[in-house]
Simulated scan of single mutants.
Amino acid sequence: MSTPSITPKTPSRRFLLIAGATGTALAIVIAASGLITRAVSASANAQWSGSNAVPTVNLAKPQVGQASAISLPGTIQPFQKAQLYARVDGYLKSWSVDIGAPVHAGQTLAVVDAPDLDQQLAAARGDLAMAQANYRLATLTATRWSDLSQTGAVAQQVVDEKAGDREAKRAVVSALQAKVRGIEALSAYKRIAAPFDGIVTARKTDIGALITAGSNGQELFEVADLRKLRIYVQVPQTLAAKLKVGQQATFTLPEQPGQTLKASVAAISHALDPAARTMLVQLQAANPGNVGAGAYCQVTFDEPAAASNAIRIPATALIVRNAGSAVAIVGPGNKAVIRDVKLGRDYGDAVDVVAGLSPSDRIVDTPPETLRTGDAVRIAAPAPAKTKAGA
Results as ranks from 00 to 15, higher is better:
223 V>D: 12
215 S>G: 11
241 A>R: 00
231 I>D: 05
220 L>N: 02
217 G>L: 11
221 F>H: 06
230 R>I: 10
235 V>Y: 00
213 A>D: 06
214 G>V: 15
208 G>Q: 05
240 A>M: 07
211 I>Y: 01
218 Q>E: 06
226 L>V: 07
226 L>I: 09
207 I>V: 15
223 V>L: 13
229 L>G: 06
205 T>C: 06
207 I>K: 06
214 G>H: 08
230 R>Q: 12
224 A>P: 10
234 Q>A: 15
222 E>R: 13
218 Q>N: 09
214 G>Q: 09
205 T>M: 07
211 I>V: 15
223 V>R: 11
241 A>E: 01
237 Q>H: 02
225 D>W: 05
222 E>F: 05
212 T>K: 15
233 V>N: 03
207 I>D: 04
238 T>A: 14
226 L>C: 00
214 G>R: 08
234 Q>Y: 04
235 V>L: 03
232 Y>R: 06
226 L>P: 02
234 Q>M: 10
204 K>F: 03
230 R>G: 09
220 L>K: 00
229 L>I: 11
223 V>M: 14
229 L>W: 04
225 D>L: 10
204 K>T: 09
216 N>V: 11
241 A>M: 01
229 L>D: 06
213 A>M: 09
233 V>C: 03
235 V>K: 02
238 T>E: 13
222 E>D: 08
214 G>T: 14
210 L>E: 15
218 Q>C: 02
211 I>T: 08
228 K>V: 04
205 T>K: 00
232 Y>K: 04
224 A>Y: 07
233 V>A: 05
234 Q>G: 11
237 Q>R: 02
232 Y>C: 05
205 T>W: 00
239 L>F: 11
209 A>D: 15
219 E>Y: 02
228 K>T: 04
227 R>V: 08
217 G>Q: 07
216 N>P: 03
210 L>V: 14
217 G>C: 11
225 D>H: 03
208 G>A: 10
218 Q>W: 00
204 K>G: 08
241 A>S: 03
212 T>S: 15
228 K>C: 02
237 Q>N: 04
233 V>D: 03
219 E>T: 11
208 G>R: 04
223 V>H: 11
237 Q>F: 02
218 Q>L: 10
214 G>F: 08
217 G>I: 10
212 T>M: 14
236 P>N: 08
219 E>P: 08
215 S>D: 13
216 N>S: 11
206 D>E: 09
213 A>E: 08
219 E>C: 12
233 V>R: 03
240 A>P: 07
222 E>N: 09
223 V>G: 12
208 G>H: 05
206 D>W: 00
230 R>D: 14
227 R>A: 12
225 D>F: 03
213 A>R: 05
216 N>F: 05
226 L>N: 01
232 Y>E: 13
238 T>F: 07
235 V>C: 03
227 R>I: 06
208 G>W: 07
223 V>P: 10
225 D>A: 11
204 K>H: 07
229 L>M: 12
225 D>K: 05
215 S>Q: 15
237 Q>G: 01
219 E>M: 15
213 A>V: 12
226 L>F: 00
228 K>W: 00
206 D>R: 01
231 I>K: 00
217 G>S: 11
215 S>Y: 10
